[in-house]
Design a protein around this nucleic acid. Sequence first.
DNA 1: ACTTTATGCAAGCAAGTACACGCATAAAAG
DNA 2: CTTTTATGCGTGTACTTGCTTGCATAAAGT
Lengths: 190, 190
Amino acid sequence: MDETSQKIIDAAMMLVRDHGYVATTTKVIAKAAGVNECTLFRKFKNKKDIVLQGVNQAKWRANVTPEIFQNVQWDLRADTEMFMRAYMDRMTPDFVNLSIGLRAPQLYEETASLIMKVPQAFLLSFTQYLNKMHEMGKLPKADFDALALTVFSSAFGYTFLKASFGNGLLNVEKDDYIKNSVQMFIKSLE
Amino acid sequence: MDETSQKIIDAAMMLVRDHGYVATTTKVIAKAAGVNECTLFRKFKNKKDIVLQGVNQAKWRANVTPEIFQNVQWDLRADTEMFMRAYMDRMTPDFVNLSIGLRAPQLYEETASLIMKVPQAFLLSFTQYLNKMHEMGKLPKADFDALALTVFSSAFGYTFLKASFGNGLLNVEKDDYIKNSVQMFIKSLE
DNA sequence: ACTTTATGCAAGCAAGTACACGCATAAAAG
DNA sequence: CTTTTATGCGTGTACTTGCTTGCATAAAGT
């Protein structure tokens, strides 16, 4: 990926994040990237191609992959906090807004599976973790699918609401929120 | 509100829900409403005016107001389930998608406060409820702001994820999910 | 019977949109 | 030194977009 192309992609992704895909015109992409408009079309097939290549770059995905959840200590509280924090630290308001900006009918079909990978990474990893904890005799049998979903929803809900409404809606600090949510989760399993 | 204007508003809102505000053109609104395009501008100031009037209609807001949370029995489990169900029954995928479709910079400033009223209604009502339960001696002292937020995030997260990814991501049934989440919440307060 | 009101229809308009073409030029590669 | 490559610049094109105007007509109200 040459420097110019990368500048174009970066500009496009930031604009999509801030204004949505449809409202992001090739003209403003070019201006924001500091290149001539026709350069976009020399480097990329079309506008959609720019964004699609951006979505496929690691730097334009919140770095939420199964790997970030591997560092477990087999302690329920510490690990659940780690899971939530790993997600919430990476899924910044910027990335929340980007995934909404990408929800244009023209490209959603091609981006949905990528966007879905983030929640999937959390849910799969955490469910597997809970199952292993059960096998190790550290957890009673329970509906781990539903439990993992509840924990993830908590992380997701907070992140999304914060990104959308800021402190106008919720003035609970992230750390307090995580502690509180995990405490709830733990106690319910005792 | 005359019949024609209402048809126009309804068509516009459905299109915004399905394709977003920017991608919803006056041409397709007219076609979907079964009227001539110039009729839109006889009835409304401009495209934005159509959507703004739609947003202000009760039928185009999920009917989530503080009133729907009034029917409490002062039983923590029953009431928390009622809160979650009241929200989740009304906030259908259609309304989730509509609120995303409305997130266009051109009108977000004027719709954000309306969109925010839904989470606010839940959070305020539930926090007040928890405080009253505490006054009645049925609950120990706790950080009710953070607790309410966690419960709401659970409801919100499930609703949003279901609307966005359907059963591809989560095959947990709504009723199971509510029961599970509420169980978690209750136990944590014991 | 007359007037008002609501709508359709055709045409149009200024601005914008994605994208293309040809030409100039400067740097990099051979 | 020559050729290739990358880019800027101006112009252009086919189409769309939000919105307007003038005229016809049918229904509704008086």
